[in-house]
């Protein structure tokens, strides 16, 4: 009898392990930091790209409306691809887009913007990449949709049609 119980327990245990692995296969393999924080680090102080003036991030994010933070660099190829979407967002919705220029050379960054157009309300500089980490970014490009100083949605990687539509919808729904 004792032996049978042992047998059943071991079989059940094997099945349990099987089940867990089976489920585990469905999970995504790569880890992406989903939204861990709803708050945006508003106390960060940045320098402006053009005149090097110090600006508090919190001052740029307006209350009671949407803003977008976009982390980009001139050396980053996907950033070029997503640039058109940022311009569109700027034109359609008149939202403030705050650009954070990530580990870039000033001259290259300015050239990039004059070539492709400037969607940004303000371009801030993150020379050593540490401020982006304080914002919870892992690289370029990343885009944060913020409403009322609260992080609504975080996009890691370049914007595309789907993400663009989602942003438009999120803004529309909120306004209605």
């Amino acid at each position: 009898m004792n032996k049978n119980i042992k047998f059943i327990i071991i079989i059940l245990f094997s099945l349990f392990v099987f089940f867990v692995f089976y489920k585990g296969l469905e999970k995504p393999k790569n880890y992406l930091p989903e939204k861990n924080l709803n708050k945006i680090e508003t106390s960060l102080v940045f320098k402006n790209l053009n005149d090097q003036k110090e600006i508090l991030l919190g001052d740029l994010i307006t209350n009671n409306s949407f803003s977008i933070i976009n982390i980009w660099a001139s050396w980053c190829l996907p950033c070029r691809d997503e640039h058109a979407y940022l311009l569109k967002l700027r034109n359609i919705n008149k939202i403030d887009i705050i650009g954070i220029n990530y580990k870039d050379k000033k001259s290259n960054a300015i050239e990039f913007l004059s070539d492709l157009g400037n969607p940004y309300h303000e371009v801030l500089v993150d020379l050593d990449g540490t401020k982006s980490i304080e914002l919870g970014a892992i690289g370029v490009p990343e885009t944060y949709l913020i409403n009322n100083k609260i992080l609504v949605k975080k996009y890691i990687g370049p914007l595309d049609d789907a993400k663009f539509k989602e942003i438009i919808n999120l803004i529309k729904n909120e306004k209605n």
């Binding site: 580990k103 990449g129 540490t130 690289g139």
Partner: peptide, 11 residues
């Protein structure tokens, strides 16, 4: 040696 890691060390 990624940008992220280098910045992280500075931070």
């Amino acid at each position: 040696q990624s940008d992220f890691a280098l910045s992280m060390k500075i931070l």
